Simulated scan of single mutants.
Amino acid sequence: MLAKANRIRSGADYRLTVRKGARVHAPNTITYVRTAPGTGAEPGPARFGFIVSKAVGSAVVRNTVRRRLKAVCRELLPEVSPGREIVVRALPASAQASWITLQSEIRRAVDKVGARCMP
């Protein structure tokens, strides 16, 4: 599970990220990435949010998809620049997508918008 500091919890933050963030389409997901304004000199931690609608499937399927997306983002967390907010919207096809496919889609989205830390 992602730590509380790494989760987007308010509806306003979801709306801001979806409306103002860079959007990357993939067959199973849509990923929105936004740089959140930091408080003070240091940017806040990278935060993730997930949108899995009823169109994806039953509650069991939706929760499985959400858990898989969270696991992908937990692996990706050390590589994401601080101050980034990332919302992943699962499309109905994500219910049948493999782990590798979901992982590659989210990694590609983060790379495409330049949200990854440079070593």
Rank of each mutant, 00 (worst) to 15 (best):
A3M: 09
A3H: 14
A5H: 10
R9T: 13
G11F: 12
G11H: 12
R15F: 03
R15L: 08
L16W: 05
T17Y: 07
T17R: 03
V18W: 00
K20F: 08
G21K: 01
A22C: 10
A22F: 11
A22Q: 12
A22T: 09
H25I: 09
P27E: 14
P27W: 13
N28P: 09
T29G: 02
T29N: 03
I30A: 00
I30R: 02
T31F: 06
T35F: 03
P37C: 05
G38H: 01
G38P: 04
G38S: 08
G38F: 01
T39C: 02
G40N: 00
A41Y: 04
P43K: 05
G44W: 01
P45H: 11
P45T: 11
A46N: 12
R47T: 04
R47N: 01
F48P: 00
I51V: 15
I51G: 01
A55L: 08
V56Y: 04
S58D: 08
S58I: 07
A59H: 13
V60P: 02
V61E: 07
R62F: 07
N63K: 04
N63E: 01
T64P: 01
V65H: 06
R67A: 04
R67T: 03
R67C: 08
A71Q: 12
R74T: 09
E75N: 13
E75M: 13
L76P: 07
P82F: 09
P82K: 13
G83C: 14
I86Q: 00
I86R: 00
I86N: 06
I86F: 05
R89G: 03
P92E: 11
A93Q: 15
S94C: 11
A95S: 12
Q96S: 15
S98W: 02
I100Q: 14
T101G: 10
L102N: 06
L102Q: 02
E105Y: 03
E105H: 06
I106L: 10
A109I: 09
V110W: 09
D111P: 00
V113A: 07
R116T: 13
C117L: 15
P119F: 08
